[in-house]
């Protein structure tokens, strides 16, 4: 592959990687905000539990008036902990996504380094790298973004409904 074509492939690969990183950061914004909100609510909940506990000590009769106060506060706190567990999983997705992009960029760097000493490179090396990244991406939105930035040789088939369906499937449970 001539140097100018190699440079063009490298530039496209880097631009695609940058777009993936942008998507990764965007996807984690809402879960992190939700997590912050839940932590805030849990802190308030703990205050309520402390208050309920103190009221019981000061005036045991309060148990008769508000018997469920403590149980309700604990139930609410458990729900908030569960919500936090759900949102924290998006951090795991972010780490996976970034690792795949990191591996892709490492391959690109290796390719550029080896091409600086070689006269020619196989034309399908960049296609192979693109395909390896594509198989490792974990959502349809990520794959479609890659297809848009680095179209496969046969052309990209962008189907946004597939990405929406996948989003709707998050959290689903199916017993066979």
């Amino acid at each position: 592959m001539p140097q100018s074509a190699q440079t063009s492939e490298a530039a496209q690969a880097i631009a695609a990687a940058v777009a993936q990183i942008e998507l990764a950061v965007r996807e984690v914004q809402t879960p992190v905000q939700e997590l912050g909100l839940l932590i805030d609510q849990m802190s308030t909940g703990l205050g309520n539990i402390r208050g309920a506990g103190r009221r019981r000590i000061v005036n045991p009769d309060v148990v008769a008036v508000f018997p469920d106060e403590l149980d309700r506060a604990v139930d609410k706190l458990q729900k908030q902990v569960n919500g936090s567990i759900t949102q924290l999983q998006f951090y795991d997705r972010l780490v996976q996504h970034l690792k795949h992009i990191q591996d892709f960029l490492s391959s690109a760097a290796g390719e550029l380094a080896s091409s600086s000493t070689a006269d020619t490179q196989p034309v399908d090396v960049w296609d192979g790298m693109r395909e390896r990244l594509r198989t490792r991406l974990i959502s349809e939105a990520q794959r479609q973004l890659l297809d848009a930035m680095l179209p496969p040789p046969e052309g990209a088939d962008i189907d946004s409904q597939q990405a929406r369906d996948e989003l709707a499937a998050q959290g689903s449970v199916e017993l066979f």
């Binding site: 569960n82 759900t86 999983q89 998006f90 959290g171 449970v173």
Partner: peptide, 21 residues
């Protein structure tokens, strides 16, 4: 496989599924 859960999982839903299984 007995079943398929898509991440991110909801703790309540996962525990309910496990209790059934």
């Amino acid at each position: 496989a007995t079943g398929w859960v898509v991440k991110p999982f909801s703790p309540d839903r996962l525990l309910a599924t496990i209790a059934r299984i």
